[in-house]
Amino acid sequence: MNFFRLTADLMHLLSIFVLLLKIQKTRSCSGISFKTQLLYAVVFVTRYLDLLKWISLYNTLMKIFFIASSIYILYLMKIKFRATYDPSQDTFRIEFLLGACLLLALVFNYTFTFIEVLWTFSIYLEAVAILPQLFMLSRTGEAETITTHYLFALGAYRGLYLLNWIWRFYTEHHIDWIVWVAGAIQTALYSDFFYIYYKKVLHGQKFELP
């Protein structure tokens, strides 16, 4: 564990709490892509098939939290606050993402086993899971400030993981190409968002696309 990775994980936790706060406080999931949340649930379930394999208490608790919270968010969006979800805004075709990620995972993996291919699939899928949300944002052209805080925390988590990998490469010669390439792409997807977040939200303005 190092500073970057711990901070990244805490940002990830924070992003989920901000999302839950947004839904509970406004009693609405408007502006949130159900498809992105669905993809995250798929990511966590397929990645943490090794849940029973002991690494540390921290590792196990975080895995349980990520799986449970992602499914809870699906429940909030699909059942509790269903009326506030507008599917006509959430039109990104996730079938292509799922198909492409599965294909890539079958071809580019470390070991061709069931668990390993699903783990690789989850890494690729996480890289692009935010696309339906960003697509929704670009369609509506604006977002509630709290939603942008959620996205910022999520993007910051990814950015900090890049720093963590650089740190780990120099301190422990840790190498993981699959995770690095996917993580770099994932972080790059946030660059436009970061720019507008910095220009607008941090200066007290509403998030609006130019």
């Binding site: 990830h12 590792n59 990520f66 470390y110 070991t111 190498i175 993981d176 190409w177 699959i178 995770v179």
Partner: peptide, 10 residues
């Protein structure tokens, strides 16, 4: 690959 066996990251 050592990386594939040591999945300590989340």
């Amino acid at each position: 690959e050592a990386a594939a066996k040591n999945k300590d990251e989340l």
